[in-house]
Design a protein around this nucleic acid. Structure first.
Lengths: 196, 196
DNA sequence: CAAAAATGCGACCGTTCGTTCACATGTGAT
DNA sequence: ATCACATGTGAACGAACGGTCGCATTTTTG
C-alpha cells in the first residue's frame, strides 16, 4: 500500500481539483474517498499545496514526453483522407482519456491563479497544437496534397476550431458525439478548402 | 451609499471570482477591499451564493441584450478589408473591456461547477460567436465577396481561432499586442483563402 | 529474528470560513 | 419632531479548514 497510496492520492486530487478547483477541494473529502484517514495523507505530502505542485510537475512531464518530442509528431498523411483518420484518432483519444480530460479541466480552472498552470494551458490549448500540426501541413504541401501556403497559419486555422470543440466535450460530455461529427465535418471542409 | 454599495459589491465579487474562483474568494477580503465591515454585505445579499447567482443573472442578461438580439449583429462588410476593420474593432473592445474580460475568466473558472456558467461559457466561447458571424458571411457571399460555401462552417472556422487568441489575451495579457497582430494576420489569411 | 523505517490512525490545535446578532447611525416620509 | 426603515458595525458563533502529534501496525532491512 506504499507507493500505490501516493499515486492514488494524486489521481483523486486531479479528479477533485478538475471538478471543484484547488480551493474548492479539501483534504478530508479527498482522503476519505480513498478510505484513508485525514492525517495519513501527510505521510506522502507535506501540504495540500505540495499535492498541487506534484500534480503540475507530472502534467508538465507527461505533456513534454507525450507531445514535446519530435518522434511523437503525427505522421504526414499520404492522402487527404488520411488526415481525417489521423485527426479523428487523436481527437477520440484526447476526448475519452479521462486523465487528459481532467488535465485540461484543471488547467482551465487554475490558469489564472498559478503561473505554471497558465503556461501549460497555453501550450495545451494553443501553441502545442499549432507546433504539432505545422510539420504535418508542411509535409502535405511537399507531397502536393495541399496548395502552398504558410504551414503554421494552416496549423493554427486547423487546430483552433478542433480545440474549441474538444473544450465543448470537456464542458458538456453529452455533446461529445455531436462535437466529434462536427470536427470531422470541419476537417473535410478544411481539406476541400486548401487542397490543390 | 445605498444602491451604489450593492453594485460595488458585485463589481468586486466579479473581480475576485475571476481571479481566485468562487471557493477561493472570502467575504472578509471582499468587503474590506471596499472599506466595508464583514457583516455589512449581508444587508444586500443573503449569502455568498446569492452574490454568485446575482452575478450570473447579470452576465446572462448582459450577454442576451448585447449579443442576443439581431440588431446588434455586426454589419455585412462591403469589402473584404471592412471585415478586417469590423473584426479588429470587436476584438479590441472585447479584449480591453475589463468587465467582459473578467466575465470570460469567471466562466472559464466555474464552467465545471455551475450549470448556468457551463451553458453561458458555451455560448460565449462557441455558439454565440458562430451565430454572430454566420449572417455576416452569408451576406458577403450574397455580395460576391466570398465564394459560395456553408456560411455557418465559415463562421465557425473564422471565430474559433480568433476566440483562441482572445483566451490567450485573458491568460497572458502581456501578449495582447502579439495576439492582436496574429488575429489580424489570420483574418487576412481567411479572406485570401475564401475570396472569389 | 530483531531493529528500523514507513505507513495508518484518531484526537486535537489554531485559524479561517460563512453567517448571525444586538446595536448604532443615517435618511425619508408623515 | 417622530417614526419607520435602510444601512453599517464589531463581536461572536458553529462549522469546516489545513495541519500536527503520539501511538499502533505493517513492511523493509541487516
Amino acid at each position: 500500500m506504499a507507493k500505490d497510496t501516493k499515486a492514488r492520492i494524486l489521481a483523486t486530487a486531479l479528479e477533485m481539483f478538475s471538478k471543484n478547483g484547488y480551493a474548492g477541494t479539501n483534504i478530508r473529502e479527498l482522503t476519505s474517498s480513498l478510505g484513508l484517514g485525514k492525517s495519513s495523507m501527510y505521510r506522502h505530502f507535506n501540504s495540500k499545496e505540495e499535492i498541487w505542485n506534484t500534480l503540475l510537475d507530472e502534467m508538465i512531464a507527461y505533456y513534454t514526453s507525450r507531445f514535446g518530442s519530435p518522434e511523437h509528431l503525427p505522421p504526414v498523411p499520404e492522402s487527404p483522407e488520411e488526415l481525417v483518420v489521423i485527426t479523428m484518432r487523436m481527437v477520440d483519444f484526447t476526448v475519452h482519456d479521462e486523465k487528459i480530460v481532467m488535465t485540461r479541466k484543471v488547467l482551465a480552472v487554475e490558469q489564472f491563479r498559478d503561473d505554471r498552470a497558465r503556461e501549460l494551458a497555453s501550450r495545451h490549448f494553443l501553441t502545442g497544437l499549432t507546433a504539432m500540426f505545422t510539420p504535418v501541413f508542411s509535409g502535405m504541401m511537399d507531397r502536393g496534397l495541399l496548395r502552398r501556403d504558410d504551414p503554421e497559419m494552416l496549423a493554427f486555422a486547423y487546430t483552433a476550431p478542433i480545440s474549441a470543440l474538444i473544450h465543448l466535450c470537456d464542458r458538456e460530455p453529452e455533446k461529445t458525439p455531436d462535437a466529434m461529427a462536427r470536427i470531422e465535418a470541419f476537417c473535410r471542409h478544411f481539406i476541400r478548402t486548401y487542397k490543390i
